[in-house]
Nucleic acid binder design. Structure first.
Lengths: 144, 144
DNA sequence: TCCTAGCTGAGACTGTGTCTCAAATCTAGC
DNA sequence: GCTAGATTTGAGACACAGTCTCAGCTAGGA
């Protein structure tokens, strides 16, 4: 909230509602999640307002835009967690968050090596989570 | 083309046109690029057909789906080049392709360490390309 | 040649996100 | 506390990428 004020942005009722709702949200969420959970509550905030505020919160450093699964833009609170990467299971849709210092280092070094001033990055790994990999292996065994 | 036949898929005129057009395409392209370049030529292939074939070509191993810039799904031919990552410049929009073995290794090891069976991955690095980073630095110098 | 599963085209439809503009509201200055 | 005016809002139209439907067509095996 304070960060909005610092930037000369107004602290409207709607913005308070949105920020409060973000606090109540799961780790990842997208604009439509917010719109519907605000609608479910007593807060009346229009879709346009939510869509307008999200990029502002990213710029102000409250949110971080994470990968896009499908076509929706996903967000997560910056302070809630350290930066992390995501494993996406093709079979069950699970999203596994993880942090890997060696990977971070490799990314930063790759950028530096090429004179690139990196502001953010994301790694998307798609495949089978441990559970589905096992299930798949069993299914193939049975077939043979 | 052969790969389609191997899978029991038909080699229709439209599919030949699409595959030929992909060959004539720049490194990256998306469905709309293809649709419009097909329309510009003498080939008449509908949008639906193009959108239908692209995921098939990915599955068959002819194309690879790369990162999504904005909201469009981008593709690139698999054989044209080795797997590579992308640096995206926020300022000029340039996309720099690069390959970094250390980074690949770090990604694979991160997946393996977590029992994840990785099928594909992509790294998106956003920031300033060397040229824009220099321009930015100069601009800030001038201002002070 | 014939048959039919698979493919196509046209356009309606869906979902996500943006834009517009009149009306409402926040905040600085008095 | 009041006022002015700059910002923000809401509702809905719009834009765009991508999907779906279904009647008609066709590749390719028998």
């Amino acid at each position: 909230m304070q960060r909005l004020a610092d930037r000369g942005l107004r602290l409207t009722q709607q913005r308070r509602c949105i920020v409060a709702q973000i606090g109540a949200q799961e780790a990842h969420f997208d604009a439509e999640d917010l719109v519907s959970s605000l609608a479910a509550g007593d807060d009346r905030v229009s879709r346009a307002t939510v869509y307008r505020l999200l990029p502002v919160l990213v710029e102000v450093g409250v949110l971080r835009e994470v990968m896009r699964f499908g076509s929706r833009r996903e967000f997560e609170p910056v302070e809630a967690s350290e930066h992390h990467e995501h494993l996406v299971c093709e079979r069950c849709g699970a999203v596994i968050e993880f942090r890997d210092q060696a990977l971070e280092d490799a990314i930063e070094s790759a950028a530096r090596k090429r004179g690139f001033e990196m502001h953010r990055h994301s790694v998307e790994m798609v495949g089978l989570c441990p559970r589905c990999a096992r299930a798949q292996a069993r299914a193939e065994e049975d077939r043979s």
